[in-house]
């Protein structure tokens, strides 16, 4: 199947244009969902002082960091990280008791 003539056309080069992925088939909604979930968890952690939800918020912002598109700006990720870290710190400052380990009752 080797084509005999040379098919290359250097004069017909079209420059690359940045493709926005949201329209294409490769669009992946995971980072946005994780971002929203992280915000909700850190709000719970801050308002209701639930330690486990603050930790969950930190985990959600890690996951959304791992899946960010390089075209997104970093502000969103930085703000979600700061929010979740502040939730963890605040919930421990107000009540430094550790979370009651569920496996304590098993021992």
């Amino acid at each position: 199947m080797q084509s005999s003539t040379d098919v290359r056309r250097p004069n017909k080069v079209v420059r690359a244009k940045p493709v926005d992925l949201s329209q294409s088939v490769f669009e992946d909604p995971l980072p946005d969902y994780m971002n929203v979930l992280g915000m909700v968890f850190s709000m719970c952690g801050l308002m209701l002082r639930l330690k486990w939800s603050a930790w969950a918020a930190l985990f959600c912002s890690c996951v959304s960091f791992a899946n960010t598109r390089s075209s997104d700006d970093a502000k969103q990720i930085v703000s979600s990280f700061m929010l979740s870290v502040s939730a963890v710190v605040m919930s421990y400052l107000q009540n430094p008791q550790p979370i009651y380990p569920p496996w304590a009752s098993l021992l």
């Binding site: 098919v7 290359r8 056309r9 250097p10 004069n11 017909k12 080069v13 079209v14 420059r15 690359a16």
Partner: peptide
């Protein structure tokens, strides 16, 4: 890019 028949 740069081929006959296709823009890229």
């Amino acid at each position: 890019s740069g081929r006959v028949g296709v823009s890229g």
